[in-house]
Design a protein around this nucleic acid. Structure first.
Lengths: 195, 195
DNA sequence: TTCATTTCTTGAACTAGATTAAGTTTTTTT
DNA sequence: AAAAAAACTTAATCTAGTTCAAGAAATGAA
């Protein structure tokens, strides 16, 4: 299969069976989009336009804090869906930004067709239910780590869970994702390399 | 309708239409369970047996930290589903406890029938997909608050978002849910009442 | 290859919140 | 109603991580 959506279909197949006819139907609802590094798919105040599946590259969700910093709350790499469900579900302005960390290619499932696709393809609804169960579980684990590990321990845990990922993002983004300052991350790394 | 599951059916109806026949079908998969205060529905090391809908009372999910403390990561009151999806999905031992904070009555959807119900009742699968979208959104907001507000600000925010809830749980549970110590919560309250 | 911008590092002073410990109040059990 | 257990408070001391500031290194643009 040489569809431009092939990696998505492969991902779906890992969760639910999807016939060729169903894949064709789904295809008519999807588009592809390329975003250059630092460009935004979503900006604070905007209604989140779609759900995005990363084909290549890396996205992040962040928010602007009152002190003028960016707080990264989520990364999305290959084979991950990323969106702001709060805004998508209720058609209300988002409090977040979704930005490309690298030059990125995504599959776009527009919010205006999402419910219609689910009605036509119950298997796809199941696929999303299963993914959402996974991400709900992941969010609980994230909260567990935030509250039960020190900053330094969170960094090491993240590194061993996602080896190599540290190289893909600027340290200040990773620091805010892990819940501390870039200066503190710098100190952790200095400590490690002196060992 | 005087089904013992009436509050659940009412909740479902807020998200998807469910015919009387479908409600009957669903009913055959559900049971009811009463749990006394401090009893557990799930213990660390056990495979999570079910998804629980709170009819009356209050549940919490917590974990035992290395230092011997309990870290509350989630509360569930009336009209909320609570489970450990990580354990439920993969049939692996849970890292969490689910405990009744008050004497509590729940509807039980056993893990062994869950997927079968969804196959027979696509509307129910949609209902859960919608709920999971909400809880994914809520988890992101939670992470946002953890990282962008001070402990004191998190307490005040929680209080104004869930007025009255503070009275229902021991302060040490709330403190760990909010990510600080009971002593610190005590100081916050002292500060407020001296105003 | 140079200039400009962005990212990363280091150190000193500081603070939000933890820890420890003892006493008080409230709730539960008998 | 008394005793026991659980929950909450207060205060002194301590520390993980912040803030601020200035310089060094890496990256990108021209």
């Amino acid at each position: 299969m040489s569809s431009p959506f092939a990696p998505l279909f492969a991902h779906i197949a890992r969760y639910v069976p999807l016939s060729a006819a169903e894949a064709d139907t789904l295809q008519t609802y999807l588009t592809r989009q390329t975003i250059a590094r630092k460009e935004h798919l979503l900006t604070e105040g905007q209604i989140c336009p779609a759900n995005y599946f990363v084909l290549r590259g890396c996205l992040r969700t962040y928010l602007a804090t009152e002190k003028g910093n960016e707080q990264t709350i989520q990364f999305g790499i290959e084979d991950w869906w990323l969106t702001d469900y709060a805004s998508l579900d209720t058609q209300t302005p988002s409090q977040f930004y979704i930005q490309a960390v690298e030059n990125t290619e995504v599959v776009v499932l527009d919010r205006r067709v999402q419910e219609e696709v689910f009605s036509r393809l119950p298997q796809l609804e199941r696929y999303f239910r299963l993914l959402l169960q996974k991400s709900t579980a992941a969010a609980l684990f994230r909260i567990k780590f935030i509250f039960s590990l020190s900053g330094e321990a969170r960094y090491h845990h993240f590194n061993s869970t996602f080896p190599g990922f540290v190289q893909r993002v600027p340290q200040y983004m990773l620091a805010s994702y892990l819940g501390f300052t870039p200066e503190f991350l710098s100190k952790i790394r200095a400590k490690v390399s002196h060992t």
